[in-house]
């Protein structure tokens, strides 16, 4: 083997090793998320639906062999509720970031590619939305639309939207002024093609990162709304609702609130871990 080949082989092994290390760094988060997603789609695999039935004889029991995470104020098994509540809890967060990301993308492109006045108008609207505290925007929306997952999604999306609008616009403007796009314009490439092939990818990537990182914010804000009474309807199996139900018994039956709280925490941490890993990988790729 020549020296060069040996060096190359050594380099390949080194980069393979570092790739391996990087993947390992994010593996726990991915594992947790896989579990969570499975629980969302196939709760029956993890728990029995029958345990969701209220049981007056089993109110507020501590964790035990029979009830792994204890029971709540209506005697329902908390572990089962958390499992069956995964889908609803996550769907709210996912829908929020998807809609916000999409709007951010579209509006960003419009702002970057469209006429100046459109850009200015969009910036003003963003600033107006930024002036309000997020939670209060979401509260007002749910106050109008009534409680329930749909309203919560719309409310939280509206509240978190400014950040996406701003990101979309910023990166769109940045991309627009790169050499590629200038050249394409000069060469007469149609606007739409410029948008799709050159600008959209550079807007979409940071937005994607924002979406992953924003998931936690979305879910936590939704839980905050529920706590204040303007979120999900009471009684449904959803983590925010469960946290709100147990809030008067933290002193003695702390598991009612805290188990759902931990579920939320773990999921959000895993997602944000993943998000930061994606962000760093994307950054590294760009360098």
């Amino acid at each position: 083997m020549s020296l060069i080949t040996a060096l190359q082989a050594g380099q390949q092994r080194a980069s393979a090793a570092s790739t391996w290390r990087r993947l390992l760094a994010v593996a726990p988060a991915v594992l947790i998320l896989i579990l969570v997603v499975f629980a969302a789609f196939f709760p029956g695999l993890f728990a029995e639906e029958a345990n969701l039935r209220p049981n007056p004889g089993a109110v507020a029991l501590p964790p035990s062999a029979e009830h792994w995470l204890g029971t709540d104020l209506s005697g329902r098994d908390i572990y089962t509720r958390i499992v069956f509540g995964t889908g609803l809890t996550l769907s709210v967060g996912i829908r929020v970031v998807l809609v916000a990301g999409l709007i951010g993308l579209v509006v960003g492109l419009l702002a970057g590619l469209g006429p100046r006045w459109l850009d200015a108008a969009i910036t003003r609207v963003t600033e107006v939305l930024l002036a309000f505290p997020e939670l209060l925007i979401a509260l007002a929306v749910v106050a109008i639309l009534g409680r329930g997952p749909e309203s919560v999604v719309i409310g939280v999306t509206t509240a978190l939207l400014p950040a996406y609008l701003r990101q979309g616009r910023v990166y769109s403007v940045l991309a627009r002024s790169t050499g590629f796009v200038e050249a394409a314009k000069v060469l007469g490439v149609p606007r739409r093609r410029i948008a799709v092939r050159h600008i959209m990818p550079s807007v979409a990537r940071p937005l994607l990162v924002l979406m992953i990182l924003g998931f936690g914010s979305a879910v936590t804000t939704a839980a905050g709304l529920t706590f204040l009474g303007l979120g999900m309807e009471s009684g449904v199996d959803e983590w925010g609702v469960m946290m709100q139900e147990g809030r008067n018994r933290l002193g003695d039956a702390w598991w009612i609130t805290s188990m759902a709280g931990f579920a939320l925490l773990i999921t959000v941490v895993a997602v944000s871990w993943l998000g930061r890993w994606v962000a760093r990988t994307v950054q590294r790729g760009e360098r």
């Binding site: 039935r53 109110v59 005697g75 329902r76 009471s234 139900e245």
Partner: peptide, 14 residues
């Protein structure tokens, strides 16, 4: 609507 009444309603629903 306090916790106790909520629990009562849950039992009735079931």
């Amino acid at each position: 609507f306090d916790d106790e009444k909520r629990a009562l309603v849950n039992f009735f629903i079931a």
